[in-house]
Computed example of a mutant assay.
Amino acid sequence: MSGQRRGGGAAILVEGASDRAAVLAAAGLLGVDLAGDGVDVVPMGGAMSVRRFVAELGPRGAGLRLRGLCDAGEVRFFERAGLPVGAVFVCRPDLEAELIGALGHARTQAVLEEEGDLRLFRMFQQQPAQRNRTLDQQLHRFLGTTSGRKEHYGAALASALPADELPAPLRDVVRAPN
């Protein structure tokens, strides 16, 4: 946290660093200055930590207004932590799939090429465990295979989209009122 005083500012709670990278990239595309607006994007190290972050940062803690971005399978943790339904923006099934879906296969692979990873992806596709998977499954899995890759591509894939093509949960969590 950037040291917001009690009752001032807001926070977007996200599961991890890749989600934070995508939110920050989306904010840039949308022309939203989150930091200037007093909004911190807080990676929690997993959705199961949301209750602790709500307690520390929300109305009974630091007094920040909270909203969250999560995968469909994790929404229950956000709701149980006390975030209202309208403050939780849900990626279906997850952020990587939302970004790959918004870009499509050709543009996603073009981003891999621009980032110097297309050759590695082609080798990855030839592994026995990957051969029978769909291209969506291969792309999704590839993004999580190396430390730091998921975070890097959270920003790279989001940045490759025009603002009007950002997945709704990503766009809406950035534009939500503070």
Rank of each mutant, 00 (worst) to 15 (best):
R51F: 01
R52C: 00
R52I: 01
F53D: 01
V54P: 05
V54R: 06
V54H: 04
V54Y: 04
A55M: 07
A55N: 10
G58R: 04
G58E: 04
G58W: 03
P59C: 02
R60K: 14
G61L: 06
G63D: 04
G63T: 11
L64Q: 12
R65E: 11
R65D: 09
R65P: 01
L66M: 13
L66A: 13
G68N: 09
G68T: 07
L69D: 10
L69H: 11
C70E: 02
D71Q: 04
G73C: 05
G73R: 10
G73V: 05
G73P: 06
E74V: 07
E74T: 07
V75M: 12
R76I: 08
R76C: 07
F77Y: 15
F78L: 15
F78G: 07
F78M: 15
E79L: 15
E79I: 10
E79V: 08
A81Q: 07
G82M: 11
G82V: 10
L83F: 09
V85T: 11
G86F: 07
G86S: 13
G86R: 12
A87M: 02
V88W: 09
V88K: 11
V88R: 15
F89E: 06
V90Y: 12
C91N: 12
C91P: 06
R92P: 01
P93G: 10
D94L: 04
L95E: 08
E96M: 07
E96W: 03
A97N: 13
E98G: 06
E98D: 14
L99V: 04
L99T: 04
I100A: 03
G101F: 03
G101V: 01
L103N: 10
L103I: 08
L103S: 10
G104A: 02
G104E: 03
G104N: 03
G104H: 01
G104C: 02
H105K: 02
H105N: 02
A106C: 00
A106R: 11
A106W: 00
R107L: 12
T108L: 01
T108S: 10
Q109G: 00
Q109H: 04
A110G: 11
V111E: 12
V111M: 12
V111Q: 11
G116N: 08
G116H: 09
D117V: 09
L118D: 08
R119N: 08
L120N: 12
F121D: 09
F121K: 05
F121H: 07
F121L: 06
R122Q: 13
R122E: 15
R122Y: 01
M123Q: 15
F124S: 03
F124A: 03
Q125P: 03
Q125K: 13
Q126L: 14
Q126G: 13
Q126D: 14
Q126K: 14
Q127S: 12
Q127K: 15
Q127E: 15
Q127H: 13
Q127M: 15
P128C: 00
A129V: 06
A129T: 04
R131D: 03
R131K: 14
R131N: 07
